[in-house]
Design a protein around this nucleic acid. Structure first.
Length: 113
DNA sequence: CCGATGACTTGAA
DNA sequence: CTTCAAGCCATCG
């Protein structure tokens, strides 16, 4: 692979994702905004879809949409893997939606700033 | 180069 | 309150 150019965007997303504390979650828009592209929420999600291609493990299960819904659970096998992962970390999830989303929300623009 | 797709977001009807 | 539409950036065919 090319040594260091095209992974720039991915690297930032993965870098933040890896910094998400256990038991906390964040939204794509929050990460995108922190990257300077608040409108690039899709790119964050798209990067997450390729997280398996990243050299390191990325807690993508801690990244959900703005509503706190596990929109990407299907990328974890289409089962309840994502839900179980969050539950094992202390995140309450019901019907693929985080209950105390506001409580477990982790904003990189605040925590990392 | 153009068109379509996507783990999103926001606003309006 | 629910549903639809447009905007957004990047990758793929």
């Amino acid at each position: 692979m090319d040594a260091g150019s095209n992974n720039d965007f991915f690297e930032r997303v993965y870098l933040i994702a890896e910094q998400i504390p256990q038991g906390r979650v964040t939204s794509y828009g929050a990460i995108a905004k922190y990257l300077g592209s608040a409108r690039g929420a899709r790119m964050v999600g798209w990067a997450m879809s390729q997280c398996s291609s990243w050299k390191r493990f990325v807690p993508a299960h801690r990244v959900v949409n703005r509503k706190g819904v596990l929109t990407g659970k299907r990328h974890f096998g289409g089962g309840e893997i994502m839900r179980e992962l969050l539950l094992s970390e202390g995140v309450k999830v019901e019907d693929d939606q985080i209950i105390n989303f506001d409580q477990v929300f982790w904003d990189p623009a605040v925590e990392l700033d």
